[in-house]
Each structure stands twice: as structure tokens, then as C-alpha cells.
């Protein structure tokens, strides 16, 4: 691996030579998986309960959207390992690829809603 070491010294930091399978960072434990699942279960229950309260307008959809987002982040972060990928080298690229697309999607479609006066 001497050649590699030499190389790293004189090339940019974001370029590395290696083989596949270098991305096995720290994965969560089985217990953590179960905890996340319990959280998802509780949040889903809360969501359903909230929808039965008979609220309208912001009071109805804002908490629902917040809970939805939390569930989203839990699945993406824990089950899809995004949170743990951040801790391996260049692992943030996965989050960038996915999160960037998500941001483009959301911005584009929110503008479409504006164009259709959906928020009026």
C-alpha cells in the first residue's frame, strides 16, 4: 500500500484509490432498529389520532406534515443508513444525491402549486 500512501499525499482530499466495499461504516445495532420502529409506530398512531380530532386548517395539516417529515427522516436516516453514511468518507454524497433531488422536486412542484393558485 506504499504507492497509495504516496499518492494521497499529493492528490486532492476527495479522491481516493481503493476497492469497492469501502463504504461499510458503522451500522446501527438491532436494538436501535427496534427503537426506530417503535418511534415510527408511535408517530403513525399519533397521526391517525390527530386526524380524528376534527381540527381544520393549519392546526390539522401542520402537525401532520411535521410528523410525516419526522417519519421520513427516521426511515431515511436509520433504515437507509443515511445518518450512518455521513460518518464514512464521502458517504455524504448519498445524502447529497438523494436530498438534492428531493429539494429540486419539492421546489419545482411547490412553484407549480403557486401557479395554480393552490394556496390562495
Amino acid at each position: 500500500m506504499a504507492a497509495d500512501t504516496q499518492l494521497h499525499a499529493d492528490t486532492s482530499t476527495d479522491t481516493h484509490v481503493g476497492h469497492g466495499h469501502d463504504d461499510h461504516g458503522v451500522h446501527p445495532t438491532e436494538r436501535q432498529y427496534w427503537l426506530v420502529f417503535v418511534a415510527l409506530f408511535v408517530l403513525t398512531g399519533l397521526e391517525v389520532a390527530w386526524s380524528y380530532l376534527g381540527l381544520e386548517g393549519v392546526a390539522l395539516w401542520l402537525p401532520l406534515l411535521v410528523m410525516m417529515t419526522v417519519k421520513f427522516l427516521l426511515v431515511a436516516g436509520a433504515f437507509m443508513h443515511l445518518y450512518f453514511d455521513l460518518k464514512i468518507l464521502n458517504g455524504r454524497l448519498f445524502a447529497w444525491a438523494f436530498g438534492g433531488s428531493l429539494v429540486v422536486a419539492m421546489s419545482v412542484y411547490v412553484v407549480v402549486f403557486f401557479a395554480f393558485d393552490m394556496f390562495a
Binding site: S12, D14, T15, L93, S101, V104
Partner: peptide
């Protein structure tokens, strides 16, 4: 992104490759 030659950081990639990379992202989305 993942198969560049040793030492070729993103800012050493030829402009054609860069523009095509942007193109492919546009296609992807």
C-alpha cells in the same frame, strides 16, 4: 464520480466531462 483515475480530483476533470456530468444530472431529474 467514482471511477476517476488516481489523483484526478473533480477540479482536474476536463470541461467536457464536467458538462456531460451536469447533463446527466439534468436527465436524471
Amino acid at each position: 464520480l467514482n471511477m476517476r483515475a488516481p489523483g484526478m480530483s473533480m477540479m482536474k476533470v476536463p470541461v467536457f466531462t464536467w458538462m456531460t456530468l451536469v447533463t446527466q444530472f439534468l436527465l436524471l431529474l
